[in-house]
């Protein structure tokens, strides 16, 4: 399975729905999408990972890169994920302390710091 990406706007947040596998081959597409959104002025991103089947360190690197970009504009990058096998990767790399991880898009959209 390849990577699928779609975006929609909810209030002042941009929700990026990701599906499929984020790995060394597909991660550049996600990076391009995040860079494009930030360049277009979307600084509050919610990345919905509920449809993600696989995530590796290349994907983590892209998410960290996205976070750096939005933070440069005082923005935010929140994740939506309930899948244990994906959450585990964030835990073993210590990134649960870096990303706010929510259980639903609604919760992530409503969240403020």
């Amino acid at each position: 399975m390849d990577l699928s990406l779609s975006t929609r706007t909810v209030g002042d947040r941009t929700v990026v729905e990701v599906g499929g596998e984020i790995d060394v081959y597909t991660a550049p597409k996600l990076r391009e999408q995040l860079v494009e959104l930030v360049n277009d002025g979307s600084f509050h991103l919610v990345v919905d990972m509920e449809g993600v089947d696989f995530l590796d360190s290349t994907g983590l690197g892209v998410l960290v890169g996205g976070l750096k970009r939005v933070r440069a504009h005082e923005g935010s990058l929140r994740l939506v994920c309930n899948q244990e096998r994906i959450l585990k990767i964030f835990r073993i790399t210590g990134l649960t302390k870096v990303f706010p991880i929510h259980t639903s898009v609604e919760e992530a959209v409503a969240a403020t710091d």
Partner: peptide, 14 residues
């Protein structure tokens, strides 16, 4: 180097 280390970190964590 950073990406390389992140990959190794994941492997040794798993």
């Amino acid at each position: 180097t950073e990406e390389d280390e992140m990959g190794l970190a994941v492997i040794s964590g798993l």
